[in-house]
Design a protein around this nucleic acid. Structure first.
Lengths: 135, 135
DNA sequence: TCAGGTCGTTTCGGAAGCGAAACCGACTTT
DNA sequence: AAAGTCGGTTTCGCTTCCGAAACGACCTGA
C-alpha cells in the first residue's frame, strides 16, 4: 500500500540513510551500481546485461563493468544461460542479500526517527529549502 | 512524525527513486556529493568544509572537490566568513533548491506508487531477498 | 610579535568510471 | 553453410574521484 511522504520527510529520510551509508566503512557503490543491485534483488528474474541496460538506461559496457565490481564484492554472480549461451544471467548471493537488508534497515531507521520538524512555514517547497539563504 | 517502512517498502522506494534519477539525464552526483548537498539544504547553517568533513566522515580535500563540482553545477556557493577569514560558508542557491525539490518528488512518487506487493512469504528479510536464488 | 594551530585548497600519484567502437562466440536466417 | 544478427566483453582515450601530504592565509596565546 502507498506511503505518502512530503518533500521534507522524503529528503530527511534520504539524507539520513545516505549519510549513514556514506559515513560507514562499507564499500561505497556508485548510484548506478546501487541501482543495478537493487533491481536485481527486488525485481523478478532473470536479469541480463541487456535488460538492465535498457531498463536503467545505462550503456552495456557500464553494466558489464558494474557487474564486475558487484561480483568482486560478492554481491552478485554471473551464470551463463544454458538455453542461449550468449546470454548471462545475473544471480543473487547471500552476501548481497545481507548487504541490501542492512541498507534497508538504514532507510527504515531514517523513517522511524523522523520527528515532526516542520514548524509550519509558508511558501512553495523550493522556497522553504531556501528560507535562510542570503543573497 | 515517524514513518514506518518495512524492508521491502524501503528498498522499493529507494530503488524506484534511484532508478528514476539514474535514468534521467540530469547531472549524476556521487553519493558523497548528494550527501553533502542534502546536508547543506536540510540542516541548519552555517556549513563549513570542516563541519561537513566531520559530520559525514569524508576527508577535507574530498569535501573541497565536491563543493567545486556542486558549485560549477550552480547548486551551492562558497562565501568567505568575515569573522574568521580562514573559514568558508557553504550557501544554498535557487538552482540547488530546485534540484533537490525535484529529487524529493521522485522519492515521494516512489512512495505513493507502492503497491502492496508482498504476497506473504515466510523467512527473515534476507532470506526473502534470496527466495528465488538457485545455488 | 611570533610560534603554533586551524581552515581550506592544491598537488601528487593512482584508482575507477565513462561511451564509442571493435571484438568474439553463439544463435538465426536464407 | 554463409551472412547477418545478437549478447556480452574488451580496448581505447578520457574524465573524475580518491587520500596523503604540502601549502598559504589566517587566527591566537604567550
Amino acid at each position: 500500500m502507498p506511503v505518502y511522504l512530503n518533500q521534507d520527510d522524503a529528503l530527511a529520510i534520504w539524507r539520513d540513510a545516505l549519510s549513514a551509508s556514506v559515513r560507514s566503512d562499507g564499500p561505497d557503490l556508485s548510484s548506478r551500481q546501487m541501482a543495478i543491485l537493487m533491481t536485481v534483488y527486488t525485481q523478478p528474474p532473470p536479469h541480463t546485461v541487456r535488460g538492465l541496460s535498457d531498463s536503467l538506461n545505462i550503456s552495456k559496457p557500464a553494466i558489464s563493468r558494474a557487474l564486475d565490481r558487484l561480483g568482486q564484492l560478492g554481491f552478485v554472480r554471473r551464470r551463463r544461460d544454458d538455453y542461449d549461451r550468449r546470454s548471462v544471467q545475473v544471480q543473487r548471493t547471500v552476501k548481497g542479500a545481507v548487504f541490501l537488508s542492512e541498507f534497508a534497515d538504514l532507510v527504515s531507521d531514517a523513517g522511524r526517527e523522523l520527528e515532526s520538524p516542520t514548524p509550519f512555514e509558508a511558501g512553495t517547497p523550493a522556497e522553504q529549502l531556501l528560507s535562510d539563504e542570503e543573497f
